[in-house]
Protein backbone atom coordinates (compact mmCIF):
# COMPACT_ATOMS: atom_id res chain seq x y z
CA UNK A 1 0.00 0.00 0.00
CA UNK A 2 1.35 3.36 -1.01
CA UNK A 3 1.09 6.31 1.38
CA UNK A 4 0.30 9.60 -0.28
CA UNK A 5 1.35 12.83 1.44
CA UNK A 6 -1.72 14.94 2.32
CA UNK A 7 -2.51 17.84 0.03
CA UNK A 8 -2.28 21.39 1.47
CA UNK A 9 -6.05 21.68 1.64
CA UNK A 10 -6.31 18.41 3.54
CA UNK A 11 -3.60 19.61 5.88
CA UNK A 12 -5.51 22.83 6.43
CA UNK A 13 -8.70 20.94 7.18
CA UNK A 14 -6.90 18.71 9.64
CA UNK A 15 -5.32 21.69 11.35
CA UNK A 16 -8.71 23.35 11.71
CA UNK A 17 -10.10 20.16 13.21
CA UNK A 18 -7.59 20.13 16.05
CA UNK A 19 -8.72 20.88 19.56
CA UNK A 20 -6.25 23.76 19.80
CA UNK A 21 -7.63 25.50 16.72
CA UNK A 22 -11.21 25.00 17.86
CA UNK A 23 -10.36 26.35 21.30
CA UNK A 24 -9.06 29.59 19.80
CA UNK A 25 -11.78 30.31 17.25
CA UNK A 26 -15.29 30.25 18.63
CA UNK A 27 -18.19 28.76 16.68
CA UNK A 28 -19.11 31.01 13.79
CA UNK A 29 -15.61 32.33 13.33
CA UNK A 30 -14.69 32.70 9.68
CA UNK A 31 -11.49 30.78 10.45
CA UNK A 32 -13.38 27.79 11.73
CA UNK A 33 -14.07 24.83 9.45
CA UNK A 34 -17.57 24.79 8.11
CA UNK A 35 -18.08 28.55 7.93
CA UNK A 36 -20.74 29.16 5.34
CA UNK A 37 -21.62 32.51 3.91
CA UNK A 38 -25.15 32.44 5.27
CA UNK A 39 -26.78 35.17 7.30
CA UNK A 40 -26.69 32.88 10.34
CA UNK A 41 -22.93 32.43 10.09
CA UNK A 42 -22.45 36.11 9.33
CA UNK A 43 -24.31 36.96 12.51
CA UNK A 44 -22.31 34.40 14.49
CA UNK A 45 -19.07 35.76 13.06
CA UNK A 46 -19.75 39.06 14.78
CA UNK A 47 -21.42 37.70 17.87
CA UNK A 48 -18.63 35.26 18.71
CA UNK A 49 -15.85 37.75 18.12
CA UNK A 50 -14.13 40.13 20.46
CA UNK A 51 -15.32 42.92 18.14
CA UNK A 52 -18.81 42.28 19.51
CA UNK A 53 -17.74 44.70 22.24
CA UNK A 54 -17.64 47.41 19.58
CA UNK A 55 -20.12 46.38 16.93
CA UNK A 56 -23.60 44.88 17.08
CA UNK A 57 -24.54 42.10 14.67
CA UNK A 58 -26.35 44.49 12.38
CA UNK A 59 -26.13 48.19 11.69
CA UNK A 60 -28.38 50.56 9.83
CA UNK A 61 -27.62 50.44 6.14
CA UNK A 62 -27.04 54.18 5.83
CA UNK A 63 -24.21 53.86 8.38
CA UNK A 64 -22.16 52.16 5.69
CA UNK A 65 -22.37 55.21 3.48
CA UNK A 66 -18.95 56.79 3.42
CA UNK A 67 -20.41 60.29 3.22
CA UNK A 68 -22.31 59.83 6.46
CA UNK A 69 -19.43 59.20 8.89
CA UNK A 70 -16.40 59.56 6.62
CA UNK A 71 -15.00 56.88 8.96
CA UNK A 72 -13.67 59.72 11.11
CA UNK A 73 -14.41 58.27 14.55
CA UNK A 74 -13.07 54.86 13.62
CA UNK A 75 -9.97 56.35 12.04
CA UNK A 76 -9.33 58.50 15.12
CA UNK A 77 -9.42 55.33 17.22
CA UNK A 78 -7.18 53.56 14.73
CA UNK A 79 -4.73 56.47 14.87
CA UNK A 80 -4.72 56.14 18.65
CA UNK A 81 -3.74 52.48 18.29
CA UNK A 82 -1.11 53.34 15.70
CA UNK A 83 0.30 56.03 17.98
CA UNK A 84 0.37 53.61 20.90
CA UNK A 85 2.32 51.05 18.89
CA UNK A 86 4.83 53.53 17.47
CA UNK A 87 5.04 55.22 20.87
CA UNK A 88 5.94 51.97 22.61
CA UNK A 89 8.66 51.45 20.02
CA UNK A 90 10.06 54.94 20.66
CA UNK A 91 9.98 54.41 24.42
CA UNK A 92 12.68 51.75 24.05
CA UNK A 93 15.12 54.38 22.79
CA UNK A 94 14.17 57.52 24.66
CA UNK A 95 15.02 58.77 28.17
CA UNK A 96 13.28 61.93 29.39
CA UNK A 97 16.35 63.54 30.93
CA UNK A 98 17.56 67.05 30.19
CA UNK A 99 19.71 68.18 33.08
CA UNK A 100 22.23 70.88 32.41
CA UNK A 101 25.05 69.57 30.26
CA UNK A 102 23.34 66.21 29.84
CA UNK A 103 20.41 66.66 27.49
CA UNK A 104 20.06 62.91 27.21
CA UNK A 105 16.61 63.29 25.68
CA UNK A 106 17.90 65.29 22.74
CA UNK A 107 20.80 62.90 22.21
CA UNK A 108 18.32 60.01 22.19
CA UNK A 109 16.23 61.84 19.61
CA UNK A 110 19.27 62.15 17.39
CA UNK A 111 20.14 58.50 17.78
CA UNK A 112 16.55 57.52 16.98
CA UNK A 113 16.93 59.44 13.73
CA UNK A 114 20.36 58.14 12.83
CA UNK A 115 21.25 54.82 14.44
CA UNK A 116 18.02 53.09 15.43
CA UNK A 117 16.74 50.72 12.76
CA UNK A 118 13.65 52.35 11.20
CA UNK A 119 13.84 54.89 14.02
CA UNK A 120 13.26 57.91 11.83
CA UNK A 121 10.35 56.25 10.02
CA UNK A 122 8.64 55.31 13.28
CA UNK A 123 9.23 58.75 14.70
CA UNK A 124 7.78 60.36 11.58
CA UNK A 125 4.76 58.06 11.78
CA UNK A 126 4.28 59.02 15.41
CA UNK A 127 4.53 62.74 14.81
CA UNK A 128 2.47 62.97 11.63
CA UNK A 129 -0.04 60.53 13.08
CA UNK A 130 -0.41 62.70 16.17
CA UNK A 131 -1.13 65.82 14.12
CA UNK A 132 -3.53 63.84 11.98
CA UNK A 133 -5.34 62.56 15.07
CA UNK A 134 -5.96 66.09 16.37
CA UNK A 135 -7.26 66.91 12.91
CA UNK A 136 -9.47 63.83 12.56
CA UNK A 137 -10.95 64.17 16.06
CA UNK A 138 -11.86 67.78 15.27
CA UNK A 139 -13.42 66.78 11.96
CA UNK A 140 -15.25 63.93 13.70
CA UNK A 141 -16.78 66.48 16.05
CA UNK A 142 -17.87 68.61 13.09
CA UNK A 143 -19.40 65.56 11.39
CA UNK A 144 -21.32 64.66 14.54
CA UNK A 145 -22.62 68.19 14.75
CA UNK A 146 -23.72 68.38 11.13
CA UNK A 147 -25.59 65.07 11.31
CA UNK A 148 -27.24 66.12 14.57
CA UNK A 149 -25.87 62.98 16.21
CA UNK A 150 -25.65 64.67 19.62
CA UNK A 151 -29.43 64.83 19.98
CA UNK A 152 -31.26 62.70 22.54
CA UNK A 153 -30.42 60.08 23.65
CA UNK A 154 -26.84 60.84 22.68
CA UNK A 155 -26.32 64.11 24.62
CA UNK A 156 -23.94 62.68 27.17
CA UNK A 157 -21.85 60.90 24.56
CA UNK A 158 -21.22 64.27 22.93
CA UNK A 159 -19.94 65.55 26.28
CA UNK A 160 -17.66 62.52 26.54
CA UNK A 161 -16.51 63.36 23.02
CA UNK A 162 -15.62 66.92 24.04
CA UNK A 163 -13.58 65.47 26.92
CA UNK A 164 -11.85 63.14 24.46
CA UNK A 165 -11.01 66.08 22.20
CA UNK A 166 -9.54 67.89 25.17
CA UNK A 167 -7.50 64.81 26.13
CA UNK A 168 -6.28 64.42 22.56
CA UNK A 169 -5.03 68.00 22.60
CA UNK A 170 -3.37 67.31 25.95
CA UNK A 171 -1.65 64.21 24.62
CA UNK A 172 -0.42 66.02 21.55
CA UNK A 173 0.79 69.01 23.56
CA UNK A 174 2.65 66.94 26.16
CA UNK A 175 4.29 64.95 23.38
CA UNK A 176 5.38 68.15 21.68
CA UNK A 177 7.93 68.85 24.44
CA UNK A 178 9.66 65.48 24.40
CA UNK A 179 12.17 66.01 21.54
CA UNK A 180 13.69 68.77 23.71
CA UNK A 181 14.76 70.93 20.80
CA UNK A 182 14.25 74.64 20.29
CA UNK A 183 10.91 74.03 18.60
CA UNK A 184 9.62 71.94 21.49
CA UNK A 185 10.70 74.07 24.43
CA UNK A 186 9.53 77.37 22.93
CA UNK A 187 6.25 76.08 21.59
CA UNK A 188 5.51 74.73 25.05
CA UNK A 189 6.66 77.95 26.69
CA UNK A 190 4.32 79.97 24.48
CA UNK A 191 1.51 77.44 24.87
CA UNK A 192 1.66 77.30 28.66
CA UNK A 193 2.01 81.07 28.96
CA UNK A 194 -1.37 81.29 27.18
CA UNK A 195 -2.88 79.76 30.30
CA UNK A 196 -0.71 81.80 32.65
CA UNK A 197 -3.38 84.39 33.36
CA UNK A 198 -5.97 82.16 35.01
CA UNK A 199 -7.43 83.98 37.99
CA UNK A 200 -6.32 82.87 41.47
CA UNK A 201 -4.67 79.60 40.45
CA UNK A 202 -2.48 80.46 37.48
CA UNK A 203 0.80 80.43 39.43
CA UNK A 204 0.02 77.25 41.32
CA UNK A 205 -1.35 75.48 38.24
CA UNK A 206 1.64 76.44 36.14
CA UNK A 207 4.03 75.37 38.89
CA UNK A 208 2.29 72.04 39.17
CA UNK A 209 2.30 71.54 35.41
CA UNK A 210 5.85 72.69 34.76
CA UNK A 211 7.48 71.50 37.98
CA UNK A 212 8.98 74.98 38.28
CA UNK A 213 8.45 78.51 37.08
CA UNK A 214 9.82 77.89 33.59
CA UNK A 215 9.95 74.92 31.24
CA UNK A 216 12.90 72.85 32.42
CA UNK A 217 14.15 69.31 33.02
CA UNK A 218 11.44 68.68 35.62
CA UNK A 219 8.82 69.65 33.06
CA UNK A 220 10.23 67.10 30.66
CA UNK A 221 9.93 64.26 33.14
CA UNK A 222 6.44 65.37 34.20
CA UNK A 223 5.14 65.67 30.68
CA UNK A 224 6.74 62.38 29.68
CA UNK A 225 4.82 60.57 32.41
CA UNK A 226 1.65 62.41 31.45
CA UNK A 227 2.22 61.61 27.80
CA UNK A 228 3.00 57.91 28.00
CA UNK A 229 0.96 56.87 31.01
CA UNK A 230 -1.44 59.24 32.71
CA UNK A 231 -3.26 60.79 29.77
CA UNK A 232 -3.53 57.58 27.71
CA UNK A 233 -4.95 55.86 30.79
CA UNK A 234 -7.65 58.49 31.21
CA UNK A 235 -8.28 58.58 27.48
CA UNK A 236 -8.83 54.82 27.29
CA UNK A 237 -11.39 54.98 30.09
CA UNK A 238 -13.34 57.71 28.32
CA UNK A 239 -12.98 55.84 25.02
CA UNK A 240 -14.57 52.79 26.63
CA UNK A 241 -17.49 54.89 27.86
CA UNK A 242 -17.76 56.56 24.45
CA UNK A 243 -17.97 53.27 22.57
CA UNK A 244 -20.27 51.68 25.12
CA UNK A 245 -22.66 54.62 24.93
CA UNK A 246 -22.77 54.46 21.13
CA UNK A 247 -24.27 50.99 21.37
CA UNK A 248 -26.47 51.71 24.37
CA UNK A 249 -27.88 54.78 22.63
CA UNK A 250 -29.00 52.70 19.68
CA UNK A 251 -25.96 52.51 17.43
CA UNK A 252 -25.18 54.97 14.71
CA UNK A 253 -27.41 58.04 14.54
CA UNK A 254 -29.57 59.03 11.64
CA UNK A 255 -30.55 58.62 8.90
CA UNK A 256 -30.93 62.27 8.06
Amino acid sequence: MKLKPPSPSELGDRLRDTEVWKSIFRPGSIFRRGYKDTSRDRALATMNNVLYHLHPVKVKRHGLKLTYTFCLGGLSFFLFILLTITGIFLMFFYRPMADIGGAVAYADMQSIRTTVFFGDLVRNLHRWGAHLMVFSVTLHMARVFYTGAYKPPREFNWVVGVILLFLTLGLSFTGYLLPWDQLAIWAVTVGTSLGGYAPFISKQANFLLLGGVVVGPQTLLRWYVLHVLALPFVLVIFLAVHFWRIRKDGGISGPL
Partner: peptide, 17 residues
Amino acid sequence: DRVNVWPHLLIEEFVAM
Protein backbone atom coordinates in the same frame (compact mmCIF):
# COMPACT_ATOMS: atom_id res chain seq x y z
CA ASP B 1 -33.06 48.51 6.98
CA ARG B 2 -30.12 46.79 8.59
CA VAL B 3 -27.09 44.99 7.23
CA ASN B 4 -24.68 42.54 8.79
CA VAL B 5 -21.59 44.07 10.37
CA TRP B 6 -19.60 41.15 9.01
CA PRO B 7 -18.75 41.42 6.19
CA HIS B 8 -20.10 44.82 5.13
CA LEU B 9 -19.00 47.23 7.88
CA LEU B 10 -15.85 45.38 8.92
CA ILE B 11 -14.50 45.28 5.37
CA GLU B 12 -15.18 48.98 4.95
CA GLU B 13 -13.36 49.76 8.19
CA PHE B 14 -10.49 47.50 7.23
CA VAL B 15 -10.06 49.23 3.88
CA ALA B 16 -10.19 52.64 5.58
CA MET B 17 -7.44 51.55 7.98
